[in-house]
Nucleic acid binder design. Structure first.
Lengths: 340, 340
DNA sequence: AGTGCAGAATGAAACGATTCATCGAATCAC
DNA sequence: GTGATTCGATGAATCGTTTCATTCTGCACT
């Protein structure tokens, strides 16, 4: 509750001097510094970040907007950002956009007046607008797009090589000997969904494998859609022996569908996911999946914000993280022969 | 970027009048109000929350401290708090204490100077201190403890009836016909862990069932400890036919241990968890568990903060949410007879 | 016309910090 | 001893609001 004024009085110096001590300026003599530090100690003084922010037109807050923290992919990214932020004296304000462009806009418009050091945003799927982001830049807050990057965005970003991850997963299935491989892609409005589908197709094409009609299903990134599309795939006249799912949630749905059809995984059908959620180990069989290092996505984004805030003027930074295939229990060579 | 001053100039009124318009005071004539609103529109003015906060000594932020957002129990609570906060014009600042009392203290000390409307805190397990919380109250920010409540705390809180939930789960196992029921309790330093153990014991006692030595294992709330304690229970000379785990993560570990021992769930051993995480449906078999409504924990806490901020002076509010048993696939009557 | 009064509008002060032009004192060269 | 220089310290101005005592305006009443 003490203010810089009270400190200055108790220490018998001006408030300017107290400020200089606080900010570690070298222009204050040892005797004065000591008296100030003593007073700070005695009065349990904490500088008001509000006062400081108003004057400097900048806070130590980083605003992070994610679609929904209860989607298990995001907590690790948030955690990565928060860790890096905290270690460097920054704080994270979390906003759930709910995948709603309007809610996202409300958050952005208002939070900007807090003059955050930066904005880390995983945009709502349908939001391609970057006007608000530009407004942040004009206000001196840096902006990093994560995971999904609007096509018009020319600034900093962090994302995974979705295409490569999907390619590696598909290729792995091919190397196991599978030939009838289907995919449940993410929503085609989502850049990451599209990229993963492209990776899948490239692997199939390079290995001269056909992707029959019906072997490509689009779905939202959730378990229910995975279940439903899984059922659909299994009902085909020639069902696939392996399924590459656009993410782990979808893969969980596929596992449920298999179970319901009395099919065994991986003996009858192999399943591969994408994300490597914590739950992908808890599930039975443990899910073979592509780890896209959610924590590092967030951590890198926060690091960029911090570097920029400290004056990094280098040109645009586009971080691309390479995902890694994690082979677990849900994948195996196809059965020798199998009646549909 | 426009300020209230520019608005006042453009509208040809004083800044005081602009402020009155902004705050909906009735003492401004229609003509003036209209000119002000026009200017606001034209200049795309957004009031600076920093300026406002400094003057009013209060922000619309609610600080929420959780041990670790990647622990799947917390996202839903955070989401609940954020939803209620957002709907009422408040914003949520998320802090991970990492279960580290020192990190928690750093966050609390610093965030206090932002003058948040309130503090919602799930304290680190070993932190029983409430001095910082009291400092928030003195500064005019209200404080709500969630889930774990320090014994000395006399203020608002929201928590589940852990004891009753555990009692219901245990009683259910007993009603299925189990007699050899073990429990893997949470850390005994944690109030919720202790309460769940008590519920277990009460159910056993009321039904005159013995709890042999070794049938009560303490563990941390994670999968690894669950696995390890599960192995220990299964290695006993007379292993249990049912295990009540202190939370779902621990139960997942137990399922893994069972699988490794070649035992079937629920045919050989029934398992019941606590929390009803999303993953408890994805796991095989789907976990019978006690739902403690994480979303509502957070939502209630935020509601209390908002009510208090708006002037609710009623006496201490201690919200107790009643958990509900969710019967799924991991529980069944014991086998007729079974060789250890 | 003069007085009183209520309703509108004003603008200075305040919130708690940082910044910077200025001042005072000490040091140094000669 | 004087003037120049350097180093420390000062305190007023500032950031964008809200608040409130004060002033202004217009109107009704006598």
């Amino acid at each position: 509750m003490a203010t810089i004024k009270e400190i200055s009085q108790r220490a018998g110096v001006s408030i300017g001097t107290v400020s200089n001590v606080l900010n570690g300026l070298p222009t204050v003599r040892e005797a004065a510094r000591k008296r100030v530090l003593d007073a700070i100690e005695k009065l349990e003084y904490e500088p008001s970040l509000l006062g400081r922010a108003l004057r400097k037109d900048k806070t130590n807050m980083i605003v992070m907007v994610v679609p929904d923290i209860t989607n298990p992919f995001f907590p690790s990214a948030v955690r990565g950002a928060e860790d890096v932020a905290f270690q460097n004296g920054f704080r994270l304000v979390l906003c759930n956009s709910d995948n709603d462009a309007a809610k996202e806009a409300t958050y952005l418009r208002e939070m900007r007046t807090y003059r955050p050091s930066g904005l880390i945003i995983v945009p709502a799927s349908l939001s391609q607008g970057i006007d608000e982001a530009k407004a942040y830049l004009e206000a001196g807050s840096c902006v990093v797009y994560v995971d999904r990057i609007p096509t018009k965005w020319r600034g900093d970003s962090v994302t995974s090589k979705h295409e490569e991850g999907a390619y590696a997963a598909t290729r792995y299935l091919i190397e196991l000997g599978h030939e009838r491989i289907a995919t449940i892609a993410g929503p085609l409005t989502s850049p990451s969904g599209r990229a993963r589908l492209e990776g899948f197709r490239r692997a199939m094409k390079e290995n001269r494998l056909r992707v029959p009609a019906g072997y490509t299903q689009a779905a939202d990134f959730n378990k229910h859609d995975g279940y439903e599309r899984g059922k659909r795939l299994l009902a085909l006249r020639r069902p696939p022996t392996a399924i590459f799912a656009a993410n782990d949630l979808v893969a969980f749905g596929v596992l449920a569908a298999l179970r319901e059809e009395g099919l065994r995984c991986p003996q009858d059908v192999s399943v591969v996911g994408f994300d490597n959620l914590d739950d992908s180990d808890a599930v039975v069989p443990a899910l073979t999946t592509v780890d896209q290092f959610g924590y590092d996505l967030g951590a890198n984004a926060a690091q960029i914000v911090i570097d920029r805030t400290r004056g990094d003027k280098r040109s645009v930074r586009r971080v691309l993280l390479a995902p890694e295939l994690r082979i677990k229990e849900s994948s195996a060579p196809p059965a020798r022969r199998r009646k549909p």
